Amino acid sequence: MRLRVEFTTEPFDLDEVPAHALVAREVIEAAELDAVDVGPFGNTAEGPADAVLTAMDALLRKTLESGATRVSLQVNVIGEASGE
Rank of each mutant, 00 (worst) to 15 (best):
M1D: 04
L3E: 13
L3D: 08
R4H: 02
V5C: 15
E6A: 14
E6R: 04
E10K: 12
E10P: 04
P11W: 06
P11K: 10
P11N: 08
F12P: 03
D13F: 02
D13R: 00
L14K: 15
L14C: 09
D15W: 03
E16S: 13
V17C: 15
P18M: 13
A19G: 02
A19E: 13
A19D: 07
A19F: 02
H20W: 03
A21F: 01
A21Y: 00
V23P: 07
V23S: 06
V23W: 11
A24Y: 05
A24E: 02
A24V: 05
R25V: 00
R25A: 09
E26T: 11
E26Q: 13
I28P: 07
I28Y: 13
E29S: 14
E29P: 01
A30C: 01
A30M: 04
L33N: 09
D34K: 10
D34I: 00
D34M: 01
A35Y: 06
V36T: 09
V36W: 14
V36M: 13
V36Q: 07
V38L: 11
G39Q: 02
P40Y: 04
F41C: 06
F41E: 05
T44Y: 05
T44L: 13
A45N: 10
A45G: 11
A45K: 09
A45S: 11
E46K: 08
G47Y: 06
G47P: 07
G47D: 05
A49T: 09
D50G: 08
D50F: 08
A51Y: 03
V52P: 09
L53R: 08
L53K: 12
T54L: 11
A55I: 03
A55R: 06
M56I: 12
L59D: 03
L59H: 04
L59M: 08
R61M: 06
R61E: 09
R61D: 10
K62W: 01
T63G: 01
E65Y: 02
E65R: 11
S66T: 03
G67V: 06
G67R: 13
G67F: 08
G67S: 10
G67L: 07
T69M: 14
V71E: 10
S72G: 11
L73K: 15
V75L: 15
V75A: 14
V77E: 09
V77L: 14
V77N: 04
V77Q: 12
I78W: 00
G79K: 00
G79P: 00
G79V: 00
A81I: 00
S82P: 02
S82Q: 08
G83L: 05
E84K: 08
